[in-house]
Amino acid sequence: MKIPISHRSTQRQQRLFFLGMLVLFIPCLFYLDLSYGQFASGLERIPDMARQMMHLSFEELPKMLRELLTSIIIAFLCVVLSVLISLLLAFVVARATTPNRYVSAALRAMIVIIRTIPTTIWVLLAVASMGFGPMAGVVGLLLPTIAFLIRVFSDQIDEAGRDTAEAIRSVGGTWWHVVCNGLLPTLLTGFLALIAFKFEITVAETVILGIVGAGGIGVLLQGYISFYEFAPLMLGMLLVFITLFLLEMGTNLIRTKLAGKGSK
């Protein structure tokens, strides 16, 4: 007889999980009523679309660059404002440093609510209330960005800050001493890496959110798509790709630099 090697209940759980997925998959497939004819005709159009896309037109380049810059600036303003607000609130939310448990719990609940509503909807709300343009972009992105940053900051404070907080408290330091003398020096490099990461994500988001009217290059892309202008669309997509690629490289560089210096 073969000797069993796996952990019984883990194996059973995993099998049950995959079985459940399979059982759900079949009714789902029929529910959507996917049309294969549509798929096939779409395939036929690809060569034609590709041909049009190959005609790169640089006519719109200056306009696109200007809008791209707007996108990046929207993201930058939004991240800077969010950092200012969340840096303080994170210490109020984190369990290791909160001055009041009920305030912390209330803020936590608010963050959960903000984060369960997709960013696109926040921006749509902002657009609906203050009209199209960059202002709606900044305001709409603000809440989800703040919520994200508070969440990741406070997690780091709870994870790494308990001992330090205790040390400063034991010498009779105030809350501000715990935060400014103990925790910020310890956590700041980690925070900077998170901020760089969030900036990168936010730029990508502003491009998409431009499509719903939040200003920036997304607005132009949306226009090209609705009028089937594939040539400038291609250029726009290329620009976005290059920007995000460079940004990714840049933030990676910042992150490894910061992580390397604080070797633990």
Binding site: D163, T164, E166, A167, R169, S170, V171, G172, G173, T174, N181, G182, P185, T186, L188, T189, G262, K264
Partner: peptide, 20 residues
């Protein structure tokens, strides 16, 4: 705070601020 200021504490895991 005043009481704590007059009581020194030494921890098993030192609890220093390691980046300072």
């Amino acid at each position: 705070r005043q009481v704590r200021a007059n009581i020194g504490m030494i921890f098993q895991h030192y609890n220093l601020v390691y980046r300072l």
